[in-house]
Amino acid sequence: MEMKIHGEIKGIKYKLFLHKPLTRFPLENLDRALSEKASFILRVNEDNEFALSWWVSPKRTRSYPYARVYDTLGFSGKKVTIIPVIKDEGKDGDRDFLQWDTISLMSLLGVYVIVGYYIQADRNPRYRNKITNQRFDTKYIKKEIQRLLSYQSDALHWNLEQIDKISHIADMAFNAYNKISKKLGVEMHSMKSAERRIKELHKGKEEFMKLSRKLAHKAQERESVTVQPKECLAGIKGMITIKNYLGGYYYFTCDEVEIHGEDIYLIEGKHTTTGNLPSEGDIKDGLIKMILFTNLENVRVDEQKYNPVPVLKLTTNSRFNENLLSKSKRKLFNLLKEEAKYNGFKIKINDSFIV
C-alpha cells in the first residue's frame, strides 16, 4: 500500500547540531582538500570563504552525499557542492547520471551546485574493465568557484544556469572518459546508450528537467513498493509531492506514514544490523529528510489537511541500550536528541519514542 501526500515549503528554518567542524583549505590546495575531506571550508581569497562538499557519484544512494552536504549547512556563507554529471566505473562497474531532482533538492536547501566531471582515474586491480580513484577536473571547478564569487542571485538561479551548461559539461565528461579508457586499456560502458541521455541534455534545461523528473518519479514509484534491505519498517509507504514558493515540484518517498487523528507521521527509517545505533552517515542522511519535513506546510492527503509530525526512526537487530553506546556514539546520540527537540521532530528507536 502507499499514500499520496502533498505539501508546501515556503522557506527552510533549521538548526544543526551534528555537523562536524570543517577544515580550512586555500583555493590553491583544492586538489588536496578533495582527496582528504568530504566537506571543508574553501578560502577563496582574504574576504571570501565557501563551505564545500563533493559527491563521489551523482547517484544519491552512494557514499552518503547527503551527509556530506549536511555538514556544510551550518555555515553562514555560501554552501557549495560539486556533483559529477556522470560517473562511469567501466564496463565491469556502474554508471550513474545526474538527475534534475538532485539539483532541485540542493536548490531547496540553498546549496549552490557546481556540476563537474572526472578527468583522471586508476585501473581497478580486481576487475579488468573497471576504474577507481576518479579525480575531478579541478581547473574547471576553480573557474566556477571564481565565477560564484561575484554571483549575486540565489542558489536556485545559479543551479538553473548550471543546467543550461549541462550538455557542454557532459561532452567534456565523455571526452575525458575516452582518454581514460585509452590510457588505462579499460573498456567503458557503451556510448550508444549514453548518447540518448546526451541528446536529451542537449535539448536544454527544460528537456533535462522533464527527463529527470520522469525518471525520478518512476524511481519514487519503484521505491514506494520496495523495502530496501537495510530498512526495517512496517507501515504504509508514502509518496510526497512538495511544492515550493517558486512553483517547483519535488518528489520524495517517505518510508512509513501513519495517521493519528489530525496528525500525519512522516517517518524516515534508518537501520543497522551490527551496531547499537545506525552509522553517523545514515543518521545525517535521514536528517536531510527531517530538514524538509519540519518545514512542510499545508499538508494534505486527497483534500484532507493534516499536521505533519516528522519522525526519524532508528532500528537495530538487538535491543537498544543507551548505556552500551561508546563514548563517541553517546555524544552523537545526545546531539541528535538536541537537534530533534530544537527543530521539532521525533526520534523513535525500534518501538519506543525517545524524543
Rank of each mutant, 00 (worst) to 15 (best):
R128F: 04
S318T: 14
A194L: 12
E231N: 14
K214P: 00
T138Y: 06
I283L: 09
P278A: 06
L184V: 05
A121W: 06
I347N: 11
I291Y: 02
F25T: 01
F353V: 06
N350G: 07
E8S: 10
E303A: 07
V113D: 04
D92F: 00
S193F: 07
T272E: 15
I236Q: 15
N129T: 00
K10I: 04
D302S: 13
S107E: 10
Q162W: 04
L109E: 07
M239T: 02
D47H: 06
G275I: 02
R24F: 11
I163K: 00
G11E: 15
R300E: 11
K20A: 04
T241A: 04
P84C: 00
V113H: 05
K199T: 13
K142F: 06
L18F: 11
D164S: 08
A176T: 06
G110Y: 09
L233C: 02
L108K: 12
P58H: 09
L160Q: 13
G116D: 11
T132W: 05
A51F: 06
F333R: 10
D285Y: 01
P229C: 03
G344R: 06
C254V: 15
N129R: 05
Y177Q: 02
Q146H: 14
M191I: 08
I114R: 13
K20P: 01
G247S: 10
S224G: 13
T102Y: 14
F353Q: 13
L27H: 05
E46M: 12
L105R: 05
S212G: 15
E49R: 08
P310M: 02
Q220V: 12
Y151N: 10
E144S: 11
K4F: 12
R319I: 15
K10H: 13
F333L: 07
M3Q: 09
L215I: 13
L336S: 00
R147G: 08
S153L: 12
R196S: 08
F345E: 11
E161L: 09
K237F: 10
L233M: 05
L108E: 14
E195V: 03
D164H: 05
T132H: 05
Q120G: 02
L184K: 09
L148M: 04
Y249P: 05
S352A: 09
Y177P: 00
D71A: 10
M172D: 09
T132A: 07
L335Y: 06
I9Q: 08
T253C: 06
K143Q: 11
G77C: 07
L30A: 08
I114M: 09
E200Y: 04
R95I: 14
S107H: 05
A219N: 08
V309R: 12
V85W: 03
L30E: 07
V225N: 15
N175Y: 11
T241V: 07
I166L: 07
S53C: 03
K305G: 04
V56I: 11
G90N: 14
I163R: 00
G344K: 07
I264Y: 09
T274C: 05
K284P: 02
